[in-house]
Write a protein that binds this DNA or RNA. Structure first.
Lengths: 213, 213
DNA sequence: GACTGTGAATCTATTCACAGCG
DNA sequence: CGCTGTGAATAGATTCACAGTC
């Protein structure tokens, strides 16, 4: 199985660290700082300096001996890797508690994401506008998707609806599904599924707590 | 750095897979199924059968050749590893969109978690009861924590408050912090911090999407 | 001297190959 | 057979050691 170690030419683990690098270097840019060393970044993020340098090497960034890396260059390179420099449209399906929370989250724009439409099976939600995003009934899913040009969907429906809805999204041409349902999805291999299972984090924390007793 | 490979005697990666095993075997128990093979579990979860067997070996479960593993035994063993068989109290700090969503999430009880109190800086939220959980003002944090016996805190405050609030929690005796703020926390090493950064999942999905073009 | 950059070594996780058992 | 269990091999990630550069 697996086969998920490399994303393009980047190691998965490097990609997973990019958001935290980006947060820090964006903050540094805001403060007017122009260069930063791998040691300083490592200290702020709890990483070895050499790991920071390796990661930057992978994304094609080269620093200056004695000085460090240029903050602006880092921001642009990381944004480019993640495609977070341009805003992409996404739809959200399942406007329950979690879906509502994600609709209210202001941070997505900084990550290049604009939720342009939401869908729910509950007819009483249709017509609502949540934080600027219109909510439609599930019946409108295919027709709205034809109108919009969203490549990505955020899936926050209940577990028992997950597979069916995911299949509808795939058939409607959605290329990537960010899956918050906790269920594994079985879809054609050209659809990229990213599972976001909150239970994993809780499991790790629980296990650490119970092993320390 | 790092040093985070083993949790007690279990590999981190094994612990990360435990929640998905648990979900499936609980469902099988509900359906009255008594045994299951590693091959079947692997198929359902997208894992190699041998990996399933290795994981079960780590948590001390032994199967029967030709038959497979006992579903009931698996449920109990995994719940035990994660301490999800008993309910533990937790507090939630930061009742914004995300905090509200987590308070509304019914699934925590199945994961052994009961959010017994929530806190927010906004005085207009104090006195509210959200899905059975009372909300207090931040001023009450220390005094309420003295009254309750929560070992774990869910941190959903804004990034700029994260470090300060985390420190207050640590000083009040909280042993584990589930950190949704996206900021790294700098705390005494006896406090266990589990970062739950939603941006990581989005980064991986974004990178996969942009590498497929 | 103070950094970066990188091959080599180490450590971890996954996968293979096959022995053992009912 | 049809399964589990496990040592050996492979692949991947991190860390070490040190050469190179301003």
């Amino acid at each position: 199985m697996a086969y998920g170690y490399k994303i393009g030419s980047l190691p998965l683990t490097t990609v997973q660290r990019l958001p935290s690098y980006l947060r820090v270097v964006r903050e540094m840019r805001r403060l007017g700082r122009e260069v930063v060393s791998s040691a300083r970044l490592g200290e702020l993020l709890g990483l070895e300096a050499v790991q920071v340098r390796k990661d930057f090497g992978f994304i094609g960034i080269t620093g200056m001996p004695k000085m460090g890396y240029q903050v602006e260059e880092l921001v642009l390179a990381i944004e480019h890797c993640l495609n977070w420099n341009q805003v992409r449209d996404a739809v959200l399906v399942g406007v329950g508690h979690l879906g509502m929370a994600l609709l209210g989250y202001e941070g997505f724009r900084a990550h290049g994401l604009d939720i342009c439409a939401a869908f729910d099976i509950d007819p009483s939600l249709a017509g609502l506008v949540v934080n600027g995003t219109p909510v439609w009934h599930m019946d409108q899913l295919e027709s709205e998707l034809r109108r919009l040009d969203a490549r990505m969907a955020i899936l926050t429906v209940s577990p028992d609806a997950a597979q069916d809805v995911a299949l509808r999204l795939a058939r409607a041409g959605i290329e990537g599904i960010w899956n918050f349902t906790g269920c594994p999805l079985d879809l054609p291999p050209d659809v990229i599924v990213q599972d976001q299972d909150i239970a994993i984090g809780l499991a790790v924390l629980s296990a650490k707590l119970s092993s320390r007793t």
